[in-house]
């Protein structure tokens, strides 16, 4: 069920998660062989037709997941619904990997506060969330993935503390309440 969104949290997400991703997207567009459609919404919340090519889909997957993880840190600090979830989440370090596109980031929950970063995490991860194929990650990002089925099929691999991954996923999904994916 969709929980209420707060304008102040929306603005913080826009400034702290979406705009940095937009800057990355612009830089990526300047380098890309195949140029994604211009504009903030097209870059960050593309329609399905804009993801037909691998290049666009790969770019969007990395940007989208990066935005979601940055957003999770902001939500974990300012969004009451996310803070309630984190208050009942075991502390720990979670690593997020999408090897096909070189995506490797982490979130650490300590005493109810979330921090995040890129690359090798600062310690042994309590849980690693790995999408062996970027298309699966893209489906997750667009709220089109049956996660339990993907786990059983090995299309999504979670190693370690499932409760930590499960609760962080609730916070990550909260991004879609503020920035709903385009259908």
């Amino acid at each position: 069920m969709k929980k209420p969104i707060r304008p102040t949290v929306y603005l913080r997400l826009l400034a702290g998660a979406v705009l940095p991703a937009f800057r990355e997207a612009v830089a990526l567009r300047n380098r890309a062989m195949e140029r994604p459609r211009p504009g903030l919404r097209a870059l960050l919340l593309p329609a399905a037709r804009d993801l037909a090519s691998d290049a666009a889909a790969r770019a969007h997957t990395g940007l989208g997941f990066g935005t979601a993880l940055r957003g999770a840190v902001i939500l974990g600090t300012h969004d009451p619904a996310s803070r309630t979830v984190l208050a009942h989440t075991p502390d720990g370090l979670a690593r997020f990997q999408i090897p096909e596109i070189g995506f490797d980031r982490w979130l650490r929950l300590q005493a109810g506060m979330l921090r995040g970063g890129r690359g090798t995490p600062p310690g042994v991860a309590e849980v690693t969330i790995c999408f062996p194929h970027f298309r699966t990650a893209l489906a997750a990002l667009r709220n089109e993935l049956d996660e339990l089925a993907a786990l059983g099929a090995g299309e999504l691999v979670i190693t370690g503390s499932l409760p930590l991954a499960d609760h962080l996923n609730v916070v990550l999904q909260r991004m879609a309440d503020y920035f709903p994916p385009r259908r």
Binding site: D146, L148, A149, G152, G154
Partner: peptide, 17 residues
């Protein structure tokens, strides 16, 4: 079937595969 297998017997809760 949503999830393939749902609830406590979901393979997600063991080591899938």
């Amino acid at each position: 079937i949503p999830g393939g297998i749902y609830g406590h017997t979901s393979p997600a809760l063991t080591v899938p595969g």
